[in-house]
Amino acid sequence: MAAKTLTIDGKPISAEEGATILQASEEAGAKIPTLCHLDGVYDVGACRLCLVEVTGVPKLLPACTTTVAEGMDVKTDSERLRRYRRMILELLFAERNHVCAVCVSNGHCELQTLAYNHGMDHVRYDYLFPKWGVDNTHPLFGMDHNRCILCTRCVRVCWHIEGAGTKNVSGRGAQARIITDLNIPWGESDSCTRCGKCVQACPTGALSHKGSTVGEMERDRGKLEFIVLAREKKQWVTAD
């Protein structure tokens, strides 16, 4: 495949044609923040944290869905980008109830880590304190809607990797919510194969293994990558 040369944060690099800016940035050693992106499933460009500046393009572009082009000059960090990213994180914290101190994912949460990295030590917007429920009906897993950021990573692994189509989004706008089958308790779902991929995919404490207590919910992302490689490339790579 043809290679494209471009610069990321001033560093000249070459990337395969069709690669995304996000993929290319790894090579350049630039760390672009992401939330809705998950290696192995298609990207939706929804969280907008990965927005970058490209010289000559008036709009900010999502690194996860924008493919590289010859001569592109990408900036992954700037005062403006950092400000926007921080505001997006603040909006998320204000939107639902993220009380890290009592969360199963405390210390292993992507949202929490991003907040620390962006110096987000307080939220300037009014907390909305919605009353979203908790679904503990599944024998193995639990779902706490209060901690969901609607990144749809669980939905995408369920459809794209497992192929079960158990999870989806219902409603729209601020009323959007992750559902199981016909909006039934997870434990009653026929289509759920109990594979646990969604739990592995979740960036926050919204999905967890049953029985995890505060701070215990660590994820084994290697498992997902293993399955994706096996399904898509027919390669079974067990050891890293």
Binding site: S170, L182, N183
Partner: peptide, 21 residues
């Protein structure tokens, strides 16, 4: 909705997701 999802051979979650959108 269950009837429709069965006849169209679509996951129930998709039918519900669309109907509520």
């Amino acid at each position: 909705l269950l009837f429709i999802s069965c006849k169209l051979k679509l996951p129930a979650s998709r039918v519900y997701g669309v109907a509520t959108f």
